[in-house]
């Protein structure tokens, strides 16, 4: 009886589930849960996910194993998790680019909306619009004015076709300013390039110390909300542009996972992520704690996925 009901539900969701998966919700988890990190060991995503995992496993009562699967800017790991059994024992710590940026641009082998069930969002570094401290542009508007009056400004990002690139290309379109994109190999290289004066602007995270030291100036943030450490710096929306690059770091499960399991996971992870211990750890790492429910994360992913598809269509014209 129970099985058939669940089966019907799963079918309604468009997923073919084996009945034995559906049974598992009550005694979930009865063995170790695996979280896949789409990046290499030792990076910020990895370190923060490991801390979250070690705090959550106490609440779940089963160990959480963290595995790294780098490559393809995160797409390899996403593809593997999309194809994994939807039994709640394989999860992924996803970031913005493989969740809604890259899939909007080219085939990646998974569908970010249909293949995943978001559990929660727990972090996401703010991306700033930065210029060198001795740059003539004091505000975002100054910069756009200059770009509109003939001088082509170059902006560096962490890589080709990333969220920052697309969001800013959209700004260029909307304002009519001449903004030339220059992709670098990672955010560090883009930061170094703006510090060395090789590009006019850089769109990078982890800018706090360099801004406080007076080496860089923060003109705005690409996220949907302001960076609490720099409340005076406007978002692109505040400035009147219809563009944003919300940075997410969240846990996703393969689609078709039993809703009861998802809510169990969401409760446990949310409790761990909102603890003081986690916040302290993240502050040391220079990362914000930004908790969002699975529902809200789902909305963010799908909204931005469609928005980025639009931008991609727009700029490839």
């Amino acid at each position: 009886m129970k099985i058939t009901r669940r089966f019907g539900l799963a079918l309604a969701a468009g997923m073919l589930l084996t009945p034995f998966v559906a049974q598992a919700a009550d005694n979930y988890p009865d063995h170790a849960v695996k979280i896949i990190i789409p990046y290499g060991a030792g990076g910020t995503t990895d370190t923060s996910a490991r801390q979250l995992a070690s705090q959550t496993e106490k609440l779940l009562g089963q160990p959480i194993v963290v595995e790294n699967m780098p490559g393809g800017s995160g797409a390899n790991a996403m593809r593997a998790v999309a194809a994994a059994d939807a039994d709640g024992y394989t999860l992924i710590a996803a970031t913005s680019s493989p969740s809604f940026v890259t899939p909007a641009l080219r085939p990646v082998g998974y569908d970010p909306l249909k293949d995943f069930e978001p559990v929660l969002n727990y972090s996401g570094p703010y991306h700033g619009v930065l210029v060198k401290a001795d740059s003539p542009y004091k505000t975002f508007e100054d910069m756009i004015e200059a770009a509109k009056s003939g001088t082509s400004l170059s902006f560096g990002t962490a890589g080709a076709l990333g969220g920052a690139h697309l969001a800013f290309t959209s700004v260029a379109k909307q304002s009519g300013g001449a903004l030339q994109h220059v992709p670098f190999n990672g955010a560090s290289a883009a930061t170094a390039a703006v510090l060395g004066g090789h590009v006019d602007i850089s769109l990078v995270p982890a800018y706090r110390d360099l801004v406080q030291d007076g080496q860089l100036r923060l003109l705005g943030v690409l996220d949907g909300s302001r960076d609490p450490e720099f409340p005076d710096s406007p978002t692109l929306n505040d400035l009147g542009y219809k563009a944003e690059f919300p940075s997410i770091v969240g846990i996703l499960a393969p689609a078709g996972t039993d809703p009861a399991i998802i809510s169990k996971l969401e409760t446990a992870f949310t409790k761990a992520a909102s603890s003081d211990e986690f916040k302290k750890f993240m502050t040391k790492l220079g990362q914000p704690v930004r908790i969002m429910s699975g529902e809200a994360l789902k909305k963010t992913i799908s909204e931005n996925f469609y928005a980025y598809q639009e931008i991609a269509k727009e700029i490839s014209k």
Binding site: G40, A41, G42, G43, T44, T47, S188, A189, T191, A192, L195, A206, D209, L210, Q212, D213, Q215, F281, K284, L285, G286
Partner: peptide
């Protein structure tokens, strides 16, 4: 500067931060 040149130094940078020694101008 807090700007790592490669994967190894990026990992070392993270380790410094975790131990409260945030690399960078300060």
């Amino acid at each position: 500067l807090g700007i790592p040149g490669d994967a190894v130094t990026a990992v070392i940078l993270g380790a410094f931060m975790l131990h409260g020694l945030a690399p960078g101008p300060f």
